[in-house]
Simulated scan of single mutants.
Amino acid sequence: MGLFNVSMALIGALDTDVLENEKLARHTSYRIGGPASLLVTCHSYHALRRAIETVNAEGVPWVVMGRGSNILVSDDGYRGVVIMLGREFGRTVIAEDGCTLTVGAATVLMRVVNDAYARGLSGLEFAVGIPGTLGGAINMDAGTRDEWIGSVVKSVVTYRPGTGICRYDHDQIAWGYRSCSLPAGEIVLEATLGLTPASKQDISTKMDRYLSRRRRTQPMAAASCGSVFRNPPDGSAGKLIEDCGLKGFCVGGAEVSPVHANFIVNKGAATASDVLNVIRTVRGKVQETYGVELQTEVKFLGF
């Protein structure tokens, strides 16, 4: 009765949209994934708190999802509640100093990058072309090998279920390669970014350079989850996979990208099982050839 009670409690609730048995393939960059029992979009903090309290009281599993750019959803979907952040979490406020932005977690990262450019603010050029939301970027400290979002974060506000609002200054968070130390059970609501005034021409030049490199070296037009594996220390997962001769390797509709071997792309009709089989083959071959056990960067839901 848990899911039924959650549905009855949240359908029609203020600032809350509820979809039943919504296919998650419509909400992930992979275009893969079966239905979620409930997809709940919360447009305000109070709606989010109410939704979390309701699912917890009913003992129903739940997960927060942004733009679905770093996730592989099972073909069977997710028997639980997928929560997405809506309107209130997509706002940007600029401070009186003109270079400090407070940005909602649901804001698309590219929108933040373009907003910074429009205001003549530098510091986010490296993020041009990176998909997903600011909240997801914070959680995985998104960026390149040399620059990352954590370096411009001044503070982060989260919601801790059962407690409420929490605030972390930059130095209270350990920023690492594709990770940060924010507690796993907390939901990022917003972050304050400290940027630097610069000429739009200089910002544009840097953005063009990053975007050109991404277009040249990554399959940006294909449906994917971005990099599948973390780079091993002092190494490149993509190079290891390429050196194993696996570029272009396919299972069903899933293919190791001929452009970048650390991308597994959906050629149009791939299933989650296809992608998993490619991942297993790649990990096994790299382990057998180089003795390196690749760790996945993509997150899995419903398996």
Rank of each mutant, 00 (worst) to 15 (best):
A261R: 05
N21S: 12
C250V: 11
D274G: 02
D75N: 07
E297G: 07
L3F: 12
E53G: 06
V188K: 01
I32M: 04
D274N: 09
T92W: 04
S227H: 10
M65G: 01
I264S: 10
G86L: 07
L189T: 04
P232Y: 07
D169C: 08
H43I: 05
I94P: 03
L301C: 03
T92C: 14
P258R: 12
P131S: 01
D146R: 14
R216N: 10
L276R: 13
W62G: 00
L109W: 00
L246R: 07
A36S: 13
R167I: 11
A106R: 07
Q295W: 03
A95P: 09
G132C: 00
V188T: 08
V152I: 15
K200R: 15
P35D: 07
L121C: 12
I71W: 02
L240W: 03
G235W: 06
I52H: 00
D115M: 14
N70T: 02
R145E: 14
V64K: 00
L182W: 07
G2I: 04
R87E: 15
V298R: 09
Y168T: 11
L124D: 05
L124V: 11
D243W: 02
D202K: 10
R167A: 12
E297A: 08
M140P: 00
G132W: 00
M140V: 03
G132N: 02
E22T: 02
D243Y: 02
G176C: 09
L211K: 11
Y168F: 15
S122E: 14
V278H: 07
P197E: 05
V81A: 05
A261W: 08
F303S: 04
G98L: 09
Y30V: 01
V153I: 15
S29E: 02
M207H: 12
G238Y: 04
G253P: 09
Q172S: 12
K23T: 05
V63R: 13
N277Q: 13
A269C: 13
R145Q: 14
T196G: 03
S212T: 14
V73F: 06
F249D: 03
Y290V: 05
M110N: 12
D17F: 08
C250S: 15
S273D: 11
T92E: 09
Q201W: 09
Q287Y: 10
G150Q: 03
K247C: 04
A272L: 01
W148M: 08
N262G: 05
L134H: 01
M8A: 13
N139W: 08
R119L: 15
G12Q: 07
R230F: 14
V292H: 08
G268R: 08
Y290S: 04
G135H: 02
R31H: 11
R119M: 12
G185C: 06
N266C: 06
E58Q: 15
G2F: 04
L246Q: 05
G136N: 01
H43W: 04
K239N: 07
V256W: 07
Y45L: 15
G291D: 06
T28W: 01
R31Q: 08
I83W: 00
N266F: 05
T196V: 15
R49W: 03
E125M: 06
G136E: 00
